[in-house]
């Protein structure tokens, strides 16, 4: 894999939009309104896909890089930093044992044993959280993203019991006091107490034609693209490298693949 991230972005966008690369000038130029207030023009060229997915190259990940991605995520979505067992997290890191407990890793290579594995919502093809939600507050979009409607969530936490990956967090309290001022993004709402939240694959950035926040800062270790298009960069990568998914036996068909 030698392709740069920019090339990949063009490919992903091209395959997604079904456009010639020549028409993708807007992708190359950084949007002029990046720091301005989004307007209707911001959303004129969204990124689209049949089924969004992600490949995580764990060999490229260090603790620092995981934290860099996690920080970008927190900053984009106003994720509060709460210490202890009531914490809220969208993107975080764990050991191989935590990420793949059903591998029962007895004798791991030293390298893998020390590696920090990024963890996030798997955006499963058959998501259990969506099946159990009594109000459709969590639902699956046509492009495969498992999305949260915070307006509708009643806070029953059935989705947290249903998710086999521990990807969901509940707002046990008002999260606003736990968002750092310097990491605050006024263009993205905070949450209120009593609702469940998780990674959304940055739907708000995809709508602006941008890549998810973690992918942007991942130094090429995260590949995001259309699993439904066999010519996409992510499918090339999946053909090239051996990958595994977390807990395939749970039958939820995760859309996040790991290169070990």
């Amino acid at each position: 894999m030698k392709s740069s991230r920019r090339q990949f972005m063009k490919l992903a966008a091209a395959s997604a939009l079904g456009l010639g690369a020549g028409k993708l000038a807007f992708m190359g130029d950084a949007p002029a309104f990046a720091s301005d207030i989004p307007t209707a023009a911001t959303f004129e060229h969204p990124l689209k896909a049949k089924h969004w997915g992600m490949v995580i190259d764990t060999t490229k990940f260090t603790k620092e890089l995981v934290e860099k991605c996690a920080h970008a995520c927190r900053k984009q979505h106003n994720v509060p930093v709460i210490e202890g067992k009531k914490e809220v997290k969208w993107f975080w890191g764990g050991t191989f044992e935590e990420a793949f407990p059903n591998q029962i890793p007895e004798y791991l290579s030293e390298d893998v044993e020390k590696r920090e594995i990024p963890l996030l919502c798997n955006h499963c093809e058959s998501p259990m959280c969506v099946r159990v939600c009594p109000t459709q507050a969590t639902f699956q979009r046509a492009d495969g993203i498992v999305m949260m409607d915070m307006h509708r969530c009643i806070g029953c936490r059935y989705c947290m019991a249903g998710c086999p990956f521990g990807a969901r967090s509940f707002n046990f309290q008002n999260p606003r006091p736990f968002i750092k001022d310097e990491d605050f993004n006024p263009n993205y709402p905070t949450r209120t107490r009593g609702v469940v939240e998780k990674c959304t694959f940055c739907t708000e950035l995809l709508a602006e034609g941008k890549m998810p926040a973690c992918v942007e800062v991942s130094e090429g270790a995260l590949t995001f693209g259309d699993l439904g298009d066999e010519n996409s960069e992510i499918r090339h990568l999946l053909r090239e490298k051996f990958t595994i998914r977390r807990k395939p036996d749970a039958g939820t068909k995760p859309s996040v693949y790991y290169i070990i």
Partner: peptide
Amino acid sequence: VRDEVRIYTNAKGKKFSMSLTDT
């Protein structure tokens, strides 16, 4: 949130981002 539509076109055909905070 649910229908992936973010652009509102008003009676006069002018477009707006559907955002409480931003618009």
